[in-house]
Simulated assay, not measured.
Amino acid sequence: MEKWLVGVDVGGTNIKFAFLSDDGDIVYRWSIPTDVTNDGQNIIPDIASSILHKLHENNQTTNNVKGIGIGAPAFMNMETGFIFEAINLGWKDIDIKSELERRLMLPVVIDNDANVAAIGEMWKGAGIGSKDLLCITIGTGIGGGIIINGEIVHGTNGMAGEIGHITVNLENGILCNCGKYGCLETKSSATGMVQQAIAEIDNHPESLLFISYKQTGQLTAKMIVQAALEKDEYALKIVDTSCYYLGLAIANIANTINPSRIVIGGGVSKAGSLLLNSIQKYFNQFALPRVKMGADLAIATLGNDAGVIGAAWLVKNKL
């Protein structure tokens, strides 16, 4: 029997796992809640025990595993696996690679979660056949992965691909979680869309969003997208504004790296053609003609599996 690859995608709410074949096909998948109490001290033990438990359930041992790949939302040293900080997990100065290798006696390789999702889409998803790829994940925040000639670009200290923190609003920019003002994330993430909608919602009593917000006191990006799909004018305006800034940022990156494929993923991407067509319009406005000719925009196809598949690719190609 060929040895399995183990892919792990660590999120602030859930940790997703999969056993995969050497070809990247998922054999078995599961998830557990992320325990962020006590500065995330239980996360590494939980990962190790969950893998051992599921191997036992599948009548396998660690002898049947080639290695473990991990994607985590963290600032890290990619070579050593040392994590400097993972704000959503409570981690600071954690050597996850050494700790997991000690617990499981298996080799471990780690990368940023957005990079890993990009690799997943390149290997088995919307980026198949492309070695020069830009992948953008739009969720609570905005993450990005840049692949050049089949390799993830990390930069000098692992900060390459922080697309969500490109400054797009120079005047009256909103404060971002990173400490800067006017980041793309404040305009085009799920959080940014909601903030925009609430800011002017009292001026749009005719909108479905106004009615929902006043009835429940809540508004989500999913509600905004759904209202836009139902042709609600205010919701369409919010989506269009978000896509304007996305199109601007993506075009500027594309003008720099000249990718053959641009993949849009994350929860907000479920808006599908509504989102893609609007981004394409503004991308075409700001991208150079030859850059436009060479780049296809596509919605990610792997969904929640992108991270575990990309993490498995790390095992296959980096260990």
Rank of each mutant, 00 (worst) to 15 (best):
K214E: 14
K214L: 06
K214I: 02
Q215I: 07
Q215G: 06
Q215L: 03
Q215S: 12
Q215Y: 03
T216I: 11
T216F: 10
T216L: 04
T216W: 03
T216K: 09
G217L: 00
G217N: 08
G217E: 12
Q218N: 11
Q218L: 13
Q218Y: 01
Q218A: 01
L219H: 08
T220E: 13
T220L: 13
T220M: 07
A221N: 06
A221T: 03
A221R: 01
A221M: 04
A221C: 00
A221F: 02
K222Y: 03
K222F: 02
K222W: 05
K222E: 14
M223L: 15
M223I: 15
M223Q: 15
M223S: 12
M223G: 01
I224C: 03
I224F: 03
I224Y: 10
V225L: 04
V225S: 15
V225Y: 04
V225I: 14
V225C: 12
Q226P: 04
Q226M: 11
A227I: 14
A227Q: 09
A227M: 09
A227E: 14
A227F: 09
A227K: 10
A228V: 10
A228W: 06
A228M: 13
L229T: 10
L229N: 12
L229V: 14
L229W: 05
E230L: 08
E230H: 15
E230C: 06
E230Q: 15
E230Y: 05
K231L: 02
K231S: 13
K231D: 14
K231A: 13
D232W: 00
D232T: 11
D232K: 10
D232P: 02
E233P: 04
E233V: 09
E233N: 11
E233K: 10
Y234I: 04
Y234D: 02
Y234W: 05
A235L: 02
L236C: 14
L236G: 00
L236N: 13
K237C: 06
K237F: 00
K237P: 00
K237V: 02
K237I: 00
I238N: 03
I238P: 03
I238E: 08
V239R: 10
V239P: 04
V239K: 11
V239T: 09
V239A: 01
D240H: 08
D240M: 05
D240F: 08
T241V: 13
T241C: 05
T241A: 07
S242T: 12
S242W: 11
S242Y: 10
S242P: 01
S242K: 07
C243S: 01
C243V: 08
C243P: 06
Y244I: 11
Y244H: 14
Y244F: 15
Y244S: 11
Y244E: 13
Y244Q: 13
Y245I: 07
Y245S: 06
Y245K: 08
Y245D: 03
Y245C: 02
L246H: 00
L246N: 07
G247K: 03
G247D: 05
G247N: 05
G247P: 06
